[in-house]
Write a protein that binds this DNA or RNA. Structure first.
Lengths: 221, 221
DNA sequence: GTCTATACGTTGATAGAC
DNA sequence: GTCTATCAACGTATAGAC
């Protein structure tokens, strides 16, 4: 794995994966993530990435066809990581336990992969057109599936009748905030960086407020 | 006012404000906001802005010293607008009413000035170093003042003992999400754009969940 | 005040030697 | 496979005519 976002086979399709190639590609992606997270797609320069990796910039064009190809490889890594992290939330779960688990998993994601979150945020803010090729029908059906789970819980009287769609956006917005707006949080609270304990406390607070707000009692109460 | 973000006297300090000058500056800022909201500071080109406005790019350097000057003028507008919108939340207010009002005001801000929100988000994600010169001591004291209001309400037994700092981040994250991540929301819900009613429903949902989550009963109940 | 012309660095991308 | 040399296009910024 590269560093923050573990890079699997995010290469442009169908190239042999030699040892050196794999090592270089991972190093390039690692440096690219750093730049894309800070300056977005348009604001990132291949030159800067090449200098960070310590390779001639012609090599970047050898491994990845062009700037967009490198960017898509980075995005692909992030979405793959995202997919492998959130398989939870089924109808049979206990609502309070499952919801708390989801919130804590999202907070752990924000803590461990803040750059991935920021790259994704930048892309969405910029219009998110590059995400179209990744967001196939599976994505919409995943979303509707989760919403249906909440709806089933509501129908069974297990939680308050809250619009599941807006609930999901609340979960996303409140947890991603700690990754994307970390610099503002540090500035306003006088911290230099957010510790593991900060994330734990923030997660506990979110679990407490959101669960109670949905008419659920915490699992360990 | 320019368009989305009303531009007041965001000029580089101490230039006379002729009629033509004011009109051009507003047009430039309007076009600049569009570009900065989509590509961030580094990814934005003065050339594109000039073409959008219909002025020679030399004029942009005449009205604003350089690219950074234009960017700071845009940021200044946004923060001024932000300041003039959120003067609420004092100890004497009714907690439920004040909190609901704040949430709805933030949602209205996300609805009316989505570009302002996105420019701010991009800047914070990029590290937020340009915000340093605006975030004087007043900003930290504003933040601590609001947190103190919540703390006073808690001490008076008017709401659950929730960490005020994290509560503020919850309010920010959940409301700004509807501006910053609008493209994702539209994609996932199959909408083409978010209507006024969408924002109203989203605001109602947030008020309901967060107030109950804090142990408050809604004002109109 | 306004705009044309231009200076000069950086960009993404490629050709071709090794 | 790797890297040097180079290209044309675009970046910000300015000089100077009107």
């Amino acid at each position: 794995m590269t560093f923050d976002v573990p890079a699997h086979s995010a290469t442009s399709a169908g190239k042999p994966a030699g040892r050196i190639r794999q090592k270089n590609e991972e190093a390039i992606i690692k440096a690219a993530e750093e730049e894309f997270a800070r300056h977005g797609f348009k604001g990132t320069s291949m030159n800067t990435i090449a200098q960070t990796v310590g390779l001639p910039k012609a090599n970047l064009h050898y491994y990845f066809n062009n700037k967009l190809g490198l960017y898509l490889a980075v995005l692909s890594n992030i979405l793959e990581l995202w997919d492998s992290t959130f398989n939870t939330l089924t109808v049979d779960d206990d609502p309070a336990e499952a919801l708390a688990g989801y919130i804590r998993a999202k907070m752990e994601f924000s803590r461990r992969y803040p750059k991935a979150s920021r790259i994704f945020a930048m892309e969405v803010i910029s219009g998110g057109e590059c995400l179209s090729q990744f967001f196939n029908q599976d994505y919409q059906s995943w979303f509707r599936g989760r919403a249906a789970v909440f709806q089933a819980w509501i129908a069974a009287g297990k939680m308050d009748p809250i619009d599941p769609v807006h609930l999901i956006f609340l979960l996303w917005g409140s947890t991603q905030h700690y990754a994307d707006f970390a610099s503002q949080i540090c500035r306003v609270t006088g911290r230099s960086r957010l510790t593991k304990q900060d994330f734990a406390e923030a997660g506990d607070n979110l679990v407490r407020i959101i669960l109670k707000g949905c008419g659920l009692t915490p699992p360990t109460a």
